[in-house]
Amino acid sequence: MKKNLPLIAGITIPLLLILFVAGSIYLPGLFTKPKYNFLYVSGADYGPAYFVTNGQLNENITTSTLNIEREYPTGSQPQLFLYDVSKNQSEEISFADAQKLSLNTNPQSPDGFEIVSGSGGGGFFPFAYSPSDGYNTKYLEGHNVSKRLNIPDQGNYYYNFTFLGWITNQ
């Protein structure tokens, strides 16, 4: 046993790192849970289709018209989504319903979370990887927790996600 100690340690150390990574990804999420849902828009190639004033959503008529007139393929048309953090899923919402929401446009939620982009890959050959969704992946990050968001791919890489505000009246 003593003779094989360096060999055992040499094999165990990378395994411990793997366990540490698994623990640091999955464990904090069990104890720290974000509370605030948020509203976002997907699409809108011609600039912001919606904006928030005094905590309420408004439509930018000019860009909305442009987006419709140019007949961009499905997915480029701006669509509003409510993200439910407890279910970790998006739900499309109409403009009329979204207007009833009270929104906080601060990048950081009242409970200390913010939405950040994932990294677009890393490493070098042959240890390189390229996540299929790359930068477009969004994470809810805060309190040393980083939770991957299930943002449906609307087929629009650059305008797939535009944050509008944290919902404070739900």
């Binding site: 790192l17 793997i18 990574v21 698994a22 640091s24 990804i25 950040v116 982009s117 994932g118 990294s119 677009g120 890959g121 890393g122 490493g123 240890f127 990887y129 996540p131 969704d133 790359g134 930068y135 992946t137 994470y139 990050e141 040393n144 980083s146 991957r148």
Partner: peptide, 12 residues
Amino acid sequence: DLTNFMVAGNPL
């Protein structure tokens, strides 16, 4: 590769 897979694009 396994650690890449676990971490994916996690910004942490």
